[in-house]
Design a protein around this nucleic acid. Structure first.
Lengths: 185, 185
DNA sequence: ACGGTCACGACAGCAACTGACATCGTATTG
DNA sequence: CAATACGATGTCAGTTGCTGTCGTGACCGT
């Protein structure tokens, strides 16, 4: 019999998500999250840097997936095609629509959480830009392509979530990219 | 003789900017800022929502300038031209290069401040998108154009700041926009 | 068996932020 | 002109996010 129950971070994540949705983010204290997970407040901060970070855990895997796919595209592709491929790949790590919907609703209701989300997307853009440079793109092009790519991803995500006909991720990415091309034509 | 020295918010802003640059953001307490401004901590929070907000005061005017110019462009222009015009106009409310450089250095050194900056840029994008819709653009196009426009602005700003030959704002906006067009060609 | 490590608890403390109430020049009103 | 309302600030107490420090006990390798 081990001294502690396993997977403390996972329990904390679950407890936090539940409490944030039940009572709201501001109305939840870290002590309450820890209590529900059977832990102490101090332990929460050993696993997560702050009260928001507990909601952004898959971020690293998400970023890695996109970067990997960006690096895997044949050299013959255009920069924008490369970015598109990376964003397409992001769909493979999405959980089901409803989980994302609930998550987005949470973020939408709390400015602090939105800020953190934007911050994560910004570092994602930086990673994509770096990957593009590793492929040989000039720095300026890489930055611009990464930023617009993330913008496209955000918009496509909103549409994907709200689409009543539940068309696949791929479709919404392509549609949004097509609009981007038309915009600059 | 009035009861208090005038322009409490201005004094707080100045004190905050000085202390943030002198000692660093984390090493500065709100009580210290208030003390330098000849006020109390409580009064600081009456003028600014939090410790970061004191650095983002011109934001409303900035946004208003861009939106006004977006709305003023003749209807014959393309969506991207409209956005470009708005971003060009942003240059008129910039202070001198060195002030912005110091400001950007401050933001760059503090993740919390970066998050707030991203948040401000996101609401800027929302405002631009709304202005585009008011001009008659479809919602989807407006969102995309606004997001990419802000991305272009960010990149152009970095280049403008770092440009050793000190070419004008307009030049960097045009250059970056041209790259965007080339990217999607 | 023994020492080290690792994950956690316990406790103290700082600083960001908030609510309630007091203060007193200044504008307003009768 | 006097009474009164108002508006910006001070004062104080309290909550909460977050950190440093130290202790504890199960596990692991030697």
């Amino acid at each position: 019999m081990s001294r502690w129950e396993p997977d403390a971070p996972g329990r904390l994540q679950l407890a936090a998500f539940e409490l944030y949705t039940e009572r709201g983010y501001d109305q939840t204290t870290v002590a309450e999250i820890a209590a529900r997970a059977g832990l102490t407040e101090r332990t929460f901060f050993r696993h997560f840097a702050d009260k928001r970070e507990v909601l952004f855990n898959g971020g690293d895997r998400f970023r890695a997936t996109i970067v990997d796919h960006v690096l895997a595209v044949p050299a013959s592709a255009t920069t924008l095609e490369v970015v598109t491929a990376g964003i397409q790949a992001a769909g493979s790590v999405f959980p089901d629509r409803d989980t994302i919907r609930r998550r987005q609703a949470l973020l939408h209701a709390n400015p602090e959480l939105q800020e953190r989300e934007l911050s994560k997307l910004a570092t994602l853009a930086t990673s994509i830009s770096q990957a593009l440079r590793d492929r040989g793109s000039p720095a300026t092009t890489a930055d611009l392509a990464a930023e617009t790519g993330v913008a496209v991803m955000r918009i496509a995500l909103t549409r994907w979530i709200e689409d009543p006909t539940e068309r696949p991720w791929r479709t919404h990415v392509n549609t949004t990219m097509a609009e981007l091309r038309q915009l600059t034509a």
